[in-house]
Amino acid sequence: MRIARVLHTSCPAPLIALERDGCLYDVAELDRFFDTPFSPDRVPGAADFHTRVVALACAGLDVLDEHLRAGERPTEARLWPSDLLWLPPCDKDRSLYVQVDLPASSSEPRYRIGNARGLVGHEAPVPFPAREDSPDVEISIAAVLGEELRHASAEEAEAAILGYALLLGWVARDEERVHGAARARDFAATLGPVLVTKEEAGAVEALRVRARAGGDWTDLPAPRAKDLAMAEAIAFVSGHVTLAPGDVIAGPHLGACGARLAYGAVMEVSADRIGKLGARPMRGPEPPSFRRR
């Protein structure tokens, strides 16, 4: 399945949507149309992403997806791109965001706990620090967990993965040189466009990933056999931090886009079976003085 989280002009609360053949369908309307046990008239909380997708392990969504695959696509459930805002496919107020990497000089991974509230969705603008002249990006595939993990094995971590999404980890290189890694990254990361369940995504280590920043597409290096697999990365983190359902774990960086980022240019990354994620880095506003006048 391909599960999206969007904000629609007709509703003040985020909606769950299913994507099929490039089109989005409102899950609540599908439940109502097909009269499922999760219809909003029966289970009001079923429209909450964390409840339905994470806590209830996508309960009933497979049935709706089968209807869509069979060509049963009610018009009243269709969501039009002009009427919606893409959100990251997680509940960022209830998620931990962890970035894992495998430095070339070390056999042991490193991890950094990022700012989950800084996660933004597909096509959202990304405001960098106002004085940043060297915007950059680190491209990863991220996993969203469906179970709690503590001191997990790689096999247990694999079983706990709910699905995958692309992640653009934005980096202010000037800030990094002066103030360190955390401040250079905590302002934003882009996650999406959808959460692809692991059954549909297949082996993410074998995915072809491409990127571009206002120019031609560049193939990112394929992971090597000795590189850190996603399940191994998650298992390593769980040995230090208790992970909970809904947490977002980004795997090792896949490479660079092959071009220098420019403010205002569209940054895109594409992966087989995962989708195409886009964002537009912008120079942010000058912050006010943090001292009292």
Rank of each mutant, 00 (worst) to 15 (best):
P287H: 06
G202L: 10
A265T: 01
S95G: 06
G121F: 00
A189P: 09
C23D: 14
K92A: 06
D26Y: 04
S134N: 13
A116E: 04
R117G: 14
V196M: 09
R112Y: 13
A201Q: 03
A154L: 09
F128H: 03
E205L: 03
V241T: 11
R94W: 07
E29R: 13
L195V: 09
L228W: 11
M267R: 00
A235C: 12
R5E: 01
A4H: 11
G60I: 04
R20W: 15
E176V: 01
D91E: 15
S10R: 10
G202T: 11
P287C: 00
A211Y: 00
V53Q: 03
D41M: 02
V120E: 00
V6P: 02
D247G: 09
V178Y: 13
S107W: 13
L243R: 09
A172Q: 04
L166C: 09
P74R: 04
T75S: 12
V63Y: 12
V27F: 06
A231T: 06
Y97I: 03
F49M: 05
P287R: 05
A116T: 03
E132R: 10
L167H: 08
L168G: 00
V126M: 10
E29C: 07
G71V: 07
A152W: 02
A188V: 05
V248T: 03
E138K: 12
P14Y: 04
R177P: 03
R69K: 14
I113A: 13
A262D: 02
G121K: 09
A233K: 08
L61V: 14
R185H: 02
S10I: 02
F128A: 01
E205Y: 10
A4L: 12
F128S: 01
F38A: 01
E176L: 10
V43F: 00
P37G: 06
E286L: 13
D83H: 14
R2P: 01
T242H: 12
G258A: 00
K226H: 15
S289W: 08
S82V: 15
L167G: 01
M282I: 13
A265L: 00
V178W: 01
A13P: 00
G284Y: 04
I3V: 14
L7K: 13
E147W: 07
K198G: 10
P127Q: 02
G255F: 11
E200Y: 09
R131T: 06
K226R: 15
Y111N: 12
F33A: 11
T218G: 00
D21L: 15
G60A: 14
P288M: 04
L79N: 11
S39I: 01
G180V: 02
D93Y: 12
G251N: 04
